[in-house]
Amino acid sequence: MRVAIAGAGAVGRSIAGELLENGHEVLLVDKNPKSISVERVPQAEWLLADACEITALDEAALQRCNVVIAATGDDKVNLVVSLLAKTEYGVPRVVARVNNPKNEWLFNEAWGVDVAVSTPRLMSALVEEAVSVGDLVTLMRFSQGDANLVELTLGSDAPVVGTQVKSIAWPDDTALVTIIREGRVLVPSGSDVLEAGDELLFVATAEKETELEALFAAES
């Protein structure tokens, strides 16, 4: 897979390193000469250019990329890069970094963003996930289809404890993706029985989250 990353700061370089370790081709693009540190990620391709300019993106051959990651520290730049990548070059997958949570509402399909990653939101979600039992926690918002990645830890008094997955009437537009049990990741099957302490990960539309949470609410 070929991936172009706009922004060669600490975030961009870290992403590049991970992708390279997984065998992908990576191009880092940055207009700041001080950010062009080839020795830090020598396996990557580097381009000194403004990723908001069409000529630069032509040089980067964005049309050959499977994924574009807008990872600069400027939300305006990340939005422009995302929009150009999607509309001008037809990049299948565009991931954008959100620096200011107040701007998160802009990072959607209209701006070419498939997945928006907000570090402040992700950190707060992880804190909630660590301390919340029985409450639905949003870990990530997907721009397409209004779907979210959400997590819930089953309390001992949850009505579904001891119930097989196939016996539960899940809301529409909801999918149980993973069960995390005692540090193990389980791919859920219909015969799996839910246990207290299970961490359940779902992909669900925002409008169905209330119904999903109601399934796990303890009876008063």
Rank of each mutant, 00 (worst) to 15 (best):
159 P>I: 14
168 I>C: 09
182 E>T: 10
171 P>Y: 15
166 K>Q: 13
178 T>L: 15
122 L>K: 01
155 G>R: 11
175 A>E: 07
137 V>G: 02
123 M>V: 07
135 D>E: 15
115 V>D: 12
157 D>M: 11
158 A>Q: 05
109 E>Y: 07
144 Q>F: 08
137 V>M: 04
116 A>M: 09
149 L>T: 03
150 V>E: 00
145 G>E: 11
172 D>T: 12
168 I>G: 08
156 S>E: 15
117 V>T: 10
113 V>P: 03
157 D>L: 13
162 G>Q: 11
141 R>H: 15
134 G>N: 07
136 L>Q: 02
149 L>E: 02
178 T>Y: 13
112 G>K: 11
127 V>K: 01
113 V>M: 14
118 S>Q: 10
111 W>Q: 09
107 F>G: 05
127 V>N: 01
139 L>C: 06
105 W>N: 09
153 T>A: 07
146 D>S: 11
170 W>H: 09
148 N>Q: 15
159 P>G: 07
125 A>Y: 00
166 K>R: 14
160 V>D: 05
152 L>W: 06
152 L>T: 08
141 R>T: 11
110 A>N: 13
106 L>F: 15
144 Q>H: 10
183 G>P: 08
179 I>Y: 07
160 V>A: 05
122 L>P: 01
165 V>I: 14
113 V>N: 10
126 L>H: 03
121 R>A: 00
110 A>P: 02
132 S>N: 10
141 R>W: 02
112 G>L: 08
116 A>L: 08
169 A>V: 11
170 W>V: 06
135 D>I: 02
133 V>H: 04
160 V>M: 12
148 N>S: 14
142 F>I: 12
181 R>W: 14
144 Q>R: 14
129 E>I: 01
131 V>C: 03
174 T>V: 12
156 S>D: 13
124 S>P: 00
137 V>P: 02
111 W>V: 09
115 V>G: 07
167 S>L: 11
145 G>M: 10
155 G>V: 15
178 T>M: 14
155 G>T: 15
119 T>S: 04
173 D>K: 15
176 L>D: 11
153 T>E: 12
132 S>Q: 12
128 E>Y: 01
181 R>L: 13
155 G>C: 09
126 L>Y: 02
152 L>R: 06
153 T>Q: 11
116 A>I: 06
180 I>E: 07
125 A>R: 00
140 M>D: 00
132 S>T: 08
165 V>M: 09
109 E>Q: 13
173 D>V: 10
138 T>N: 05
158 A>P: 02
116 A>F: 08
113 V>L: 13
133 V>Q: 05
130 A>Q: 04
179 I>P: 12
136 L>F: 03
143 S>P: 05
169 A>H: 12
107 F>Y: 09
121 R>V: 00
